[in-house]
């Protein structure tokens, strides 16, 4: 009987001692942490994609709590809703940020851009880019090996087998920028999603001279500048034989789309073209030129 008693007492004593030590230790080594960090973290989408520029949602939450002005900080995944919640928790002014979306600035499908050789190394754009300029005559275009798709954590990209180009599923894209970093050719760009997801961009990054670019790919931007001439808002610049539309200036008037001789300018999510009577000639009459 006494053995049982001694055993029970000893164990109970040990337990009590351990509890005291643990309590003391937890008091002594207590780290003060702003409780709002946890609140903010909970409000964030926990995607840990790094799209905000911080390593994970926790780090972003810490930064949000620390910063006096959070208008520069934005969670691309959560968007305005999440940022409003966060701003509410912290009692700070939230910034205005238009939602972004990734666009693929290459339209060099198999049809438009003939393959001149056959790549057969490791299936990785980065490996191919370290080796050479690619299967086609265009050394700026998409390799079609899917590093961007691999990098996407949101199931927002897939490789179109037919065209050999990546496709972005707009609804899933959170504009975290992982694909932008993964692309060795800097083809993918984050652009403003635009009202009703409508946007216009030059779907080409080829900086070769017009004739060379055109020879390599039917739909390459040849840097002719026609689009820049018709643009009423000075949104288009031509640099290194390549047109670029500044999405902050672009007002989606779409005047540049029809004048492009190679159809390199893409419009997305606009309603299907209605029959429009001789609208195309109008812009050519305006003598303004942005160059």
């Amino acid at each position: 009987m006494s053995i049982v008693l001694i055993t029970i007492l000893t164990l109970a004593g040990l337990g009590a001692l351990a509890a005291v030590i643990l309590y003391l230790a937890s008091q002594k080594f207590k780290v003060f942490e702003d409780p709002r960090i946890n609140q903010v973290e909970e409000a964030l989408p926990a995607a840990n994609c790094g799209g905000c520029g911080f390593p994970g949602c926790r780090a972003f939450a810490e930064a949000l709590v620390k910063a006096d002005d959070i208008s520069d900080l934005n969670c691309p995944v959560g968007g305005a809703d999440v940022m409003a919640t966060v701003a509410n928790i912290l009692g700070k002014e939230m910034g205005k940020s238009d939602p972004l979306v990734a666009v693929v600035r290459c339209n060099g499908t198999c049809e438009h851009r003939p393959r001149l050789n056959e790549y057969e190394g490791a299936t990785s754009c980065a490996v191919a880019a370290a080796l050479y300029g690619g299967e086609t005559g265009c050394s700026y275009g998409c390799y079609g090996l899917g590093d961007c798709v691999e990098a996407c954590d949101f199931n927002a990209m897939y490789m179109d087998e037919k065209t050999g180009l990546p496709v972005i599923i707009e609804d899933n894209c959170v504009a975290c920028g992982a694909c932008v970093d993964a692309c060795p050719k800097e083809i993918i760009e984050l652009r403003k999603k635009g009202p009703k997801s409508r946007r216009i961009f030059v779907s080409c990054v080829n900086q070769d001279k017009g004739a060379v670019a055109k020879k390599a790919c039917d739909v390459a931007c040849i840097g002719c500048g026609k689009c820049a001439k018709v643009c009423p808002f000075d949104a288009i610049t031509i640099e290194n034989n390549l047109a670029y539309i500044d999405y902050d200036k672009c007002r989606l008037c779409r005047k540049c789309v029809p004048v492009c001789p190679t159809n390199a300018i893409h419009e997305i999510n606009f309603p299907p073209p209605k029959p429009k009577p001789a609208k195309e000639q109008e812009p050519a009459n305006t003598p303004e030129s942005s160059n």
């Binding site: 080796l131 050479y132 300029g133 690619g134 005559g137 050394s139 070769d208």
Partner: peptide
């Protein structure tokens, strides 16, 4: 011109 590496 395009050299052996495919770049200009």
């Amino acid at each position: 011109v395009v050299d052996a590496s495919g770049y200009r």
